[in-house]
Nucleic acid binder design. Sequence first.
DNA 1: AAATCATTTCGTTATTTTGCGAAATATAGA
DNA 2: TCTATATTTCGCAAAATAACGAAATGATTT
Lengths: 111, 111
Amino acid sequence: MTDKIELTAEVKQMALIAKAMSHPVRLYILKKLSTMNACCYSGDLVEELPIGRSTLSQHLKELKFAGLIQGEIEPPYIKYCLNKENWAKARELFAQLFDNQNKGELKKLDL
Amino acid sequence: MTDKIELTAEVKQMALIAKAMSHPVRLYILKKLSTMNACCYSGDLVEELPIGRSTLSQHLKELKFAGLIQGEIEPPYIKYCLNKENWAKARELFAQLFDNQNKGELKKLDL
DNA sequence: AAATCATTTCGTTATTTTGCGAAATATAGA
DNA sequence: TCTATATTTCGCAAAATAACGAAATGATTT
């Protein structure tokens, strides 16, 4: 029996990030914050999204939990922005997954 | 009231892919197939992962459902490989999310 | 102090996910 | 045909997720 491995902290971290991205509404929010390079308010989002306020709040909480966004209190609003540091980390993790083919032993490309 | 938007098929598609990636075991499998640029058998995986056979089978099924892997029957085994076409599509979607800052209106970088 | 506004938390319900072991399937070899 | 092997499907239980409306919070204005 080849011994069991322990799933690394990195894999677990990335799975957490992927989970945060695994709902259309949350992905929409991330896409908006990222491509606009801007912040937004819960009130803006609830007007354009087909979900209720409390549901949206829950989604924002999950994005916060994953570290992808952060909320600045700006009474009476809360301004939500990307957490740039963690966003960069997430980008790195996904780039590593998608682009790091043939890590370790180089593939011979002589066809 | 700014009118409600419809979440695009693209966002929904990507959420589906993110969901497939949202479990450490599934991410481990994808990472293995991608970085090794190789295929593997369910039996190989069950020996190194801390889960049972039926549970692993379920995870493989989900990865297949999301289109990220495919299984070739190679009796008595089933050889699992990345679905390269869809993998490339996934890479593109994530790259777009992470790298396409300021789509549309170019940001003025004059600080 | 009372009313208002943006947002969150609570309580609930329905659905999905994760995990397991047992049973089923399918193929190859004796 | 019987047995062994690799893997999946089934049936189940526990936990997590998604959604809602009602109530609570916290800050500002009247």
